[in-house]
Simulated assay, not measured.
Amino acid sequence: MSGEPRWADLAPRFTTAALMIFVGVGEIWLGGWLFALGIWLLAGVMMWELSRLLAPTAHGTAMALGVGASVVMAVVWFMPGFAALPLMGALAIVGAGRFEGRQGMFLGSALAILVACYVMELLRNYGGVSWLLWVIGIVIMSDIAGYFAGKMLGGPKFWPAVSPKKTWSGTIAGWIGAALVGLGFAGATDAGGWLIPLSVLVCFAGQMGDIGESAVKRQVGAKDSSGLLPGHGGFLDRFDAMIGAALAVGILWLLGLVPGL
């Protein structure tokens, strides 16, 4: 009897995740405009969800910022390197002015969404499929390992004041899963064993992305960013860890700390 509530969300989570993986793998494999279009749309949806979280009744603002995010990501596709950052920053700053009392929350979250999406575009264009799959693999393995370890082992909470469901057992299981992903990609990318600890670091950044989004939802009293994805909530709920991981990879890449990338 107690087992049913514990695993009640597994079926919808699995179905939605399988569909997302199918679409995502196709986009990644095709690359080019199709992958970029997917990123533009994803940025727009996540910005819309963020805006709705911070101002649930401001439907026009949420829609405008969602469309604005997609347009900005489309424009920066044609811009070289860091020239894209001021435009993304401008949208975040202008949007922040629409959320009285929550300007900082919107500014930080919006910048994270836009820059992370931009990093994923750069990874696919310049790093290739293998490096993009490395990041995605870390996030997915961490999520799967953390989900099952947390459900089966339970134990002390990782940060109960912010994310009451996340446990230390699930967090550590995520690190182990990430290390295994790093081990698998170490040879495939010619990066060597150094990729293993880097994978754990990227995993931790992804977990902090999850925690960060949980903190935002806790501040506004929301359970999910939206109901667009059965079993997962919204796209922001599903990609919060990917945002954190992508930001970490972007910094490591910029500093030249990822061998072979």
Rank of each mutant, 00 (worst) to 15 (best):
A55F: 00
G32D: 13
L30E: 15
A8G: 08
L54V: 05
W29R: 12
A36N: 10
V25N: 11
A18M: 10
L41F: 07
T15P: 01
L19C: 14
S2N: 15
L50I: 03
M46V: 06
L37W: 02
L19F: 08
P5C: 07
M47W: 02
S2W: 03
L19S: 11
A43F: 04
L10Q: 07
T16C: 08
A18Y: 02
A17K: 07
A17H: 03
P5F: 05
F14K: 05
L53W: 00
E49F: 01
I28S: 08
S2K: 12
V23D: 09
A11W: 10
L41R: 02
F22D: 12
V45C: 10
W33N: 14
A17Y: 01
W7E: 15
S2T: 08
R6Y: 02
L50K: 01
T15E: 11
E4Y: 09
P56R: 05
L37I: 06
E49H: 01
W33L: 13
W7C: 06
R13G: 09
F35P: 01
L53H: 02
M20E: 03
P56H: 06
F35E: 05
G38D: 06
W40S: 07
I21T: 12
M46I: 08
W7H: 09
F22H: 06
E4R: 13
V23G: 07
T57Q: 15
L34R: 08
W40G: 06
M20A: 15
F14C: 13
V25D: 10
R6N: 08
W40H: 13
S2C: 04
L41T: 09
